[in-house]
């Protein structure tokens, strides 16, 4: 869910921008020369994945996969997802310019939290175990995003409260789908390239 310019109160926009700048700075610190190509590649992958439309009944949703981004990138998910959002705003007209900070935080902060919390679980045990934790991470990240978008709206005025609730409930099917997809993606990655989630050469 992209928030657009003009919808939020100024303190929320400014707070979002500051938080995003902090997150991006932390993320950039974790990237040295060796890791920039990997981070850039994953950033491009998540951009392309966001163009995939998955059918849900008569409609379809596009993927966000921020949980997976957090699991693979850690703090670097902040700059990587920011770059994706910047390109989307500038070239596709999705989202907005002044709300770029808020949009980055709503997507990247849950991603980082999921990454820090669940990454050890993903690498452990059999691939199926990792996949189940991956699914949980995928669902948690979307839930976190929905809560944060709702919070940004609710903080901007009581009139947005119903809209904030609507946003949360609209995200429930997306949560389920992202959980299943993230789970299977982790399952495949664990089988094909087990070292991807191993703790030492992590991003």
């Amino acid at each position: 869910m992209h928030i657009v310019d003009g919808a939020l109160a100024n303190p929320v926009v400014i707070g979002g921008a500051i938080a995003a700048a902090g997150g991006i700075t932390l993320g950039l610190k974790s990237l040295d020369l060796e890791r920039i190509p990997t981070a850039g590649m994953l950033s491009a992958s998540f951009f392309v994945a966001s163009l995939i439309h998955v059918p849900v009944g008569p409609s379809s949703v596009h993927l966000i996969l921020n949980g997976l981004a957090g699991l693979l990138l850690g703090w670097a998910a902040f700059p990587a997802l920011f770059v994706g959002l910047l390109l989307q705003a500038v070239f596709f007209g999705f989202g907005g310019l002044t709300v770029l900070g808020v949009n980055t935080v709503t997507i990247a902060l849950p991603a980082v939290c999921v990454g820090l919390l669940l990454k050890p679980m993903i690498a452990r045990g059999r691939p199926l175990n990792g996949a189940i934790w991956g699914g949980i991470g995928g669902a948690l990240a979307i839930a976190g995003t929905a809560v944060m978008v709702g919070l940004a709206l609710a903080l901007s005025g009581d009139a947005f409260l119903p809209a904030a609730k609507l946003v949360f409930f609209a995200h429930i099917p997306i949560m389920v789908i992202e959980a299943v997809l993230t789970g299977f993606a982790v399952l495949l990655a664990r089988q094909v390239k087990p070292e991807l989630f191993s703790p030492t050469p992590s991003l």
Binding site: L42, F184, V192
Partner: peptide, 22 residues
């Protein structure tokens, strides 16, 4: 089946992307 296939598709893309980045 669709969701499993899309999940594998995403996983495959990520694995290939990482290998390409190496």
């Amino acid at each position: 089946h669709t969701y499993r296939s899309f999940g594998y598709l995403v996983g495959m893309m990520l694995v290939r992307a990482i290998e390409r980045s190496e």
